[in-house]
Design a protein around this nucleic acid. Structure first.
Length: 702
DNA sequence: TGGCCTCGAGTTCA
DNA sequence: CTCGAGGCCA
């Protein structure tokens, strides 16, 4: 591709993305990708000045004003910030060095702030009253959106001044309009319930809301505001530092981001970047970086600006949370219950600082909804900052044949299990398709073994994915019972065959001695698991619909395995939280002769657990109450605290709802605490919990 | 019957 | 964390 072609292509892509973003309020391309296009285009135009054109998108910063609103010329231009990528510490160091040279002796001081992901506005207060509000637009000219801004509750319509003090003749306050995460989610849930189109993301929600022509629509949107600076001023002496100016704005009644701070020198800046980066997910609003501003106002002015970018400030970004990548293939995985899950194999891409190569596509419906195909360019993000997720496909980037038809067909689930060849079936009313092979399917067998060995089930240390894979592939283990029959010799023989298959030179040959440590550890882990509890065993068996909570309930209700196995459907229905579906599953499981045989053999292999009489309903001072634990506790883990509460009759659940009776909030409690406050649910801190447990005699009093 | 609550199951990477 | 589905209550 020639430079001219590439320039054309980039200009076309950018124009499309601009249109989607600014006119349709529905972004198609992640910001990080957009930034890269702009930078690449700038570089190409610099290298080939002949190809530069006055209408190139690099000639404007952002946002053509929409024709629907009156234009406002900013008396003092609203500049943009030079941005530094997350990993470019050298650029931050260079910035600090420049400031140090200009500033004379000592480490320079900075006002440091989170960079709110919203929409910059300028608010004009004349004689203390809000008279005009405008968007940033292209920096020189923005849109007049006063009526919409007035609907934002957080904005003072008049400056708050001590009695008797004359308001300044003119004060322009700059800040960021944004939509807090919780408000965004609430709004979307309601929008969906009303059958309206949900907002794409909080930032877009804020931008779209401000640009509503009907201010009543803006008023219905949960917008918030943080001040970050001032523009034109008359009749007011500003303090000598930026941080003091922000505090002054605070006294005038403007909301300020809580994370605003001051920092000294390079180390101080980088520490702030790390601190806010770590807290990012827990903040109630979206941020995409932090901003460093020279605190000394005079020095900031001396430093001047380059183009529209002040030299005394930079934005230090965080790693992008959304990225573009290409789908290299779509595989299917087989789960413990036979569930077939399609997985997108992705070209490796760094999202939020972590390399992502796989993303679950959940099920056939999801694939159909997204219409993902091999070769597609897709937007990926890490949902809840952890799990990669394919958000959408860029259809215009789909590889095509000469005749314009797509190169790859729409994805279809295979008819047969890739692991065992059994038919794949999908029940009428269910979203998931399943392999019908049952335990004949090696994939299901492996998953069943892993589940059995997992921490919350039998907790067999040393038995991981690789090992299970080999144990099943070489026929050393077929059912969970076989685990308890393994000998050291079996394991070593299997290891030799696995090494031979992988072409690994046997360690025996190299060193002359047999490494047996891993095998001994595994046998030790298996042996320890013989001593267990009924609820762990029930969970480990992998009965469909019986997870940890149900297993716990069954164990306490029946007290012994024999009582449970003897129970008919009727008796099972009496157990709380067990209905017709679950009771049929349990009864069906124990009716299978092979399952009864496995249980008998596990007992014969030495598995044992305490049994007692049937206990029925939970008793105790917290009987019948749902309790949620969140945040981190100092004196014990959430698990241990939960066990204490359960012993007092409480039901420990994971999420806060109207039915929650009590929330125990440790350090750094996040959204659950917010929700509990909102619902008016009783909240205890760790000290209150400890005092309660002591009063109940579950903890020694001090 | 509909609308919560919960639970179960599946998932990624270091 | 998220989706889907079971259980329970109005």
């Amino acid at each position: 591709m020639t430079a001219a072609d590439r320039i054309d292509e980039l200009r076309r892509w950018i124009a499309e993305a601009d249109r989607a973003y600014y006119q349709l309020d529905a972004p198609t391309v992640p910001d990080a990708e957009y930034d890269r296009w702009i930078r690449e285009l700038q570089a190409l135009e610099a290298a080939h000045p002949a190809l530069s054109r006055p209408d190139s998108p690099t000639r404007r910063v952002a946002g053509a004003p929409s024709p629907a609103f009156a234009e406002v010329r900013h008396a003092q231009p609203m500049g943009s910030l030079r941005t530094v990528m997350a990993d470019d510490e050298a650029a931050v160091a260079a910035f600090v060095e420049r400031i140090r040279k200009a500033g004379g002796e000592g480490e320079p001081r900075f006002s440091v702030e989170p960079k709110i992901d919203g929409l910059a506005v300028s608010l004009r207060y004349e004689n203390g009253l809000l008279v005009q509000g405008a968007t940033r637009g292209d920096g020189a000219t923005g849109e007049e959106v006063t009526a919409n801004l007035r609907t934002i509750r957080a904005l003072p319509l008049a400056l708050r001044l001590p009695p008797g003090q004359t308001p300044p003749a003119l004060l322009e306050v700059r800040g960021e309009v944004h939509m807090p995460k919780a408000a965004f989610e609430r709004y979307n849930a309601q929008a969906i319930a009303r059958g309206e189109k949900p907002l794409a993301n909080p930032r877009n929600g804020a931008a779209g809301s401000l640009r509503q022509l009907d201010a009543r629509i803006s008023a219905g949107r949960p917008l918030a505001f943080f001040a970050y600076g001032v523009g034109q001023v008359a009749g007011l002496e500003l303090p000598p530092t930026h941080s003091a100016t922000l505090r002054l704005l605070g006294t005038f009644g403007f909301p300020l981001a809580r994370e605003i701070d001051v920092a000294t020198g390079l180390e101080g800046l980088l520490a702030y970047h790390r601190r806010i980066g770590a807290a990012r997910a827990a903040l109630p609003y979206e941020i995409d970086g932090v901003v460093y501003k020279v605190d000394d106002r005079a020095l900031h002015e001396v430093l001047g600006s380059t183009g529209r970018e002040p030299n005394g400030s930079i934005a230090h970004k965080f790693p992008a949370q959304e990225e573009l990548t290409v789908v290299e293939g779509i595989d299917v995985q087989v789960g413990r219950t036979g569930a077939i899950t399609p997985v997108a194999r992705l070209q490796a891409v760094s999202v939020g600082g972590v390399t992502v190569t796989n993303a679950s596509l959940h099920n056939a419906d999801q694939i159909a909804r997204l219409d993902v195909r091999v070769g597609d360019t897709v937007v990926v993000r890490r949902a809840g900052d952890v799990i990669p997720e394919v958000l959408r496909v860029l259809p215009e980037r789909r590889p095509c044949r000469a005749d314009g038809s797509p190169q790859h067909p729409a994805f279809a689930l295979p008819a047969h299990c890739p692991e065992c060849g059994s038919a794949i079936e999908r029940a009428e009313d269910e979203a998931v398709a399943r392999c019908s092979g049952g335990l004949h399917c090696p994939a299901q067998r492996k998953q069943a073994l892993l589940h059995f060995a997992s921490r919350r089930a039998m907790n067999i240390e040393g038995l991981g994915e690789r090992l299970v894979e080999d144990l099943v592939d070489f026929g050393a283990v077929k059912t969970v019972v076989d685990l308890y029959r393994l000998s050291l010799d079996d394991l070593l023989a299997m290891k030799r065959r696995a090494d031979a298959r992988d072409g690994v030179m046997a360690e025996t040959v190299k060193s002359g001695k047999i490494p047996t440590r891993w095998a001994e550890n595994l046998l030790g882990g298996i042996d320890q698991s013989r001593n267990t509890t009924l609820e762990r065993l029930l969970f480990a068996l992998g009965i469909r619909e019986v997870g940890e909570a149900t297993a716990k309930q069954l164990a306490r209700w029946f007290g012994s395995l024999d009582a449970l196995m003897a129970a008919d459907v009727e008796a099972l229905l009496a157990v709380p939280d067990v209905g017709p579906v679950v009771s049929a599953r349990i009864h069906g499981f124990f009716a299978e002769p092979q399952h009864r045989a496995i249980i008998a053999e596990l007992r014969a292999a030495g598995l044992h657990w305490p049994e007692g009489p049937a206990q029925g309903m939970a008793q105790g001072p917290l009987a019948g109450k749902s309790v949620v634990l969140t945040g981190s506790l100092d004196s014990f883990t959430r698990e241990v605290a939960g066990a204490h509460l359960e012993a007092l009759g409480a039901k420990v659940v994971g999420s806060v709802s109207k039915k929650t009776a009590l929330l125990i909030a440790g350090e750094e409690a996040g959204s659950k605490l917010d929700k509990a406050r909102e619902l008016g649910i009783e909240v205890w801190d760790e000290a209150a919990l400890i005092a309660f447990l002591q009063a109940q005699g579950r903890l020694p009093s001090v």
